Computed example of a mutant assay.
Amino acid sequence: MTTEPAISGAQAVLGNIENLVPLTSGQYTMGSLILMVSYGAHFAFILYFIMSSFQLAPRYRIVPIMSAIVMASAGLSLMREFNLWEASYAFTGGMYQPMAEGETFSNAFRYGNWTITVPILLTQLPIAFALSRPELHKRALRMIIPGVLMIWTGLYGQFGETGDFTRLNIWGVISTVFFVWLIIEVRGVITSAIANSPPQLAVWPKNLWYYFLATWGIYPIAYALPQLGFTGDIVVVRQLLFSIADISTKLLYGVILSRYVLRRSALEGYVPAAEALETSPLGSKVASARGD
């Protein structure tokens, strides 16, 4: 069984275990590929979301546009992580050694990006579900506050992963309290969405609720993972979990919301949306989309 190495005071301030753990060639390559695919996927979907907006009724076009903004922000952040990964390791003595030429790696850039993207992702929900403007503003604010507090407390706590697990766990628990508050607020939006959705689409917010729980729940697992030991496998698996969570909570989430508002646009009689769903002939497209 591999245990964490003795951590000196100087090492403890390095923040993330990536700065302490040598990697095999395979581990280093896997980490590079994970980060490269992550930022590449986000950049690739910018155009998809922009083009999707043209098929939607005007009130819903902002939903995929917001996803395009999230893709650009997340892609830039993950590209920064990839560049740090490449710069902070050097191949020496048959292993990739961290702290190449004093360059450190940090997951803090992820938290900075989440501070930008999480409020956008949460605001998309009430817009996509066509809540009234006063309710939209109220619901969005009530989700954003715990969401940002969850991120910032997690950011502070994650610097304890190289030697101060008490800090890691205490602030992890505090962050989880804000996460519970957040999911309560999300549940409120989902409940309103179910009541406000056309009967043909009522299952979408229900399913999205379970999807939200499953995908957002990956983050705390990745956060706590260093306590299992300071090994190359832990380093790579954590990057994998972070990236799976980012892709599922941003990219795939955006696709789901875009497909929902496309169907909603068609049901509300917007012909380009009905045409995008490939109903025909033209005279029956809107009726078919409405379920008539």
Rank of each mutant, 00 (worst) to 15 (best):
3 T>Y: 00
3 T>F: 10
4 E>T: 07
5 P>R: 03
6 A>H: 13
6 A>N: 09
15 G>E: 08
16 N>G: 06
18 E>L: 11
19 N>R: 14
20 L>T: 05
23 L>D: 06
25 S>I: 15
28 Y>K: 15
34 I>Q: 03
36 M>V: 11
36 M>E: 05
36 M>P: 05
37 V>Y: 05
39 Y>D: 07
39 Y>A: 05
39 Y>G: 10
45 F>K: 11
48 Y>L: 13
48 Y>A: 12
57 A>K: 12
63 V>P: 07
64 P>W: 09
66 M>L: 13
67 S>F: 13
67 S>M: 14
71 M>T: 00
72 A>I: 14
72 A>F: 05
76 L>H: 10
78 L>I: 08
81 E>G: 14
83 N>P: 10
89 Y>P: 13
89 Y>M: 11
90 A>S: 12
90 A>D: 06
92 T>C: 06
94 G>V: 07
96 Y>M: 12
96 Y>S: 11
97 Q>Y: 01
99 M>C: 15
108 A>L: 09
115 T>A: 12
118 V>R: 10
124 Q>V: 09
128 A>F: 02
132 S>L: 10
135 E>V: 11
137 H>P: 08
140 A>D: 07
144 I>H: 01
153 T>E: 09
154 G>S: 10
155 L>M: 14
157 G>Q: 09
161 E>R: 09
164 D>R: 00
164 D>H: 06
165 F>K: 04
168 L>F: 00
176 T>E: 08
179 F>R: 05
182 L>M: 07
183 I>F: 11
183 I>S: 10
186 V>T: 13
187 R>W: 05
187 R>S: 15
191 T>Y: 12
193 A>I: 12
193 A>P: 03
194 I>M: 10
194 I>K: 15
195 A>F: 06
195 A>Y: 11
196 N>G: 14
196 N>C: 12
198 P>C: 01
200 Q>H: 05
201 L>V: 14
208 L>A: 08
212 F>G: 06
216 W>V: 13
217 G>Q: 04
219 Y>A: 08
220 P>L: 01
221 I>G: 02
222 A>T: 06
223 Y>W: 04
226 P>Q: 00
231 T>G: 02
231 T>Y: 00
240 L>V: 02
241 L>P: 05
241 L>E: 03
244 I>T: 03
246 D>L: 07
250 K>P: 02
251 L>M: 07
258 S>H: 01
260 Y>T: 02
263 R>I: 03
265 S>L: 03
268 E>M: 05
276 A>R: 02
276 A>N: 01
277 L>R: 06
279 T>Q: 06
280 S>K: 03
290 R>F: 00
290 R>I: 00
291 G>S: 13
